[in-house]
């Protein structure tokens, strides 16, 4: 479902003396449906960078990043957007939303984007928000004013609203209490059972051991390791 071949990435800082910072080299990785792969490595090793390259947020310098048959490294913007709408979900560490939009609509949006009828989309959103212990009186408000933990849970609800065939999870259990953590792990298990291919970053070791089938240490992709 997700297949990376010899992917490399570097940043060129044109306004800081043209410094070139190589951050990734020969990244090769394959994730099948019903599988959850955990990315490991110390902070700064490039776990989130790898995830952003797969999502098309960062431009890969070379190699191929094939998700559901589309090579993200070479695809047109509209192909990547279609991929993000229909195939590839991403739960980032931070919630980024349009001001003024109520929480329920924020969560229902991925469903509406693929043409789910409005009532059905809202029901699914409501059930996810309830599962993640977001109080009902907050649903009509914009999540921009919520606490960090609440925003994180809204973000997760949004990521799991539509059944994406492939999912990227950047620390989905960080800053959650035990009960909510268990709910999120349950959502991940359910997604796996329905056939999703998942790549996750988990700092929480117990969570990692529960849901991941295998691990990839991203520090082997760092250019230093080759030198």
């Amino acid at each position: 479902m997700i297949e990376l071949n010899n992917v490399s990435k570097s940043f060129t800082l044109h306004n800081q003396g043209g410094a070139v910072i190589p951050v990734m080299q020969n990244a090769t990785l394959c994730v099948e449906p019903r599988e959850c792969v955990g990315l490991t490595g110390v902070s700064g090793a490039g776990k989130s960078t790898l995830m952003r390259v797969i999502y098309g947020n960062y431009l890969a310098a070379s190699g191929s990043v094939v998700v559901g048959g589309v090579d993200v490294a070479k695809a047109e913007p509209r192909e990547i957007l279609a991929l993000r709408r229909e195939t590839l979900g991403y739960v980032s560490q931070f919630l980024r939303v349009v001001p003024r939009v109520p929480t329920l609509d924020v969560v229902a949006e991925p469903l509406l984007a693929v043409g789910t009828p409005e009532g059905q989309a809202r029901d699914k959103a409501a059930s996810l928000l309830a599962q993640l212990n977001i109080r009902e009186r907050l649903w009509g408000l914009s999540p921009t004013t919520f606490s960090g933990g609440e925003q994180q849970r809204v973000n997760i609800a949004r990521g799991f609203a539509y059944d994406f065939p492939a999912l990227l999870l950047d620390e989905p259990t960080a800053s959650l209490d035990a009960q909510n953590r268990a709910t999120v792990l349950g959502l991940i298990e359910t997604a796996k059972a329905r056939g999703a291919a998942i790549i996750g970053i988990f700092h929480d070791e117990a969570a990692r051991e529960t849901v991941c089938d295998r691990f990839v240490d991203v520090s082997v992709f760092s250019p230093k390791a080759l030198a």
């Binding site: 940043f11 952003r52 098309g56 947020n57 960062y58 431009l59 913007p77 990547i80 957007l81």
Partner: peptide, 8 residues
């Protein structure tokens, strides 16, 4: 892509 041009 908008977010790619702005973030990278």
């Amino acid at each position: 892509l908008t977010d790619q041009v702005l973030d990278d």
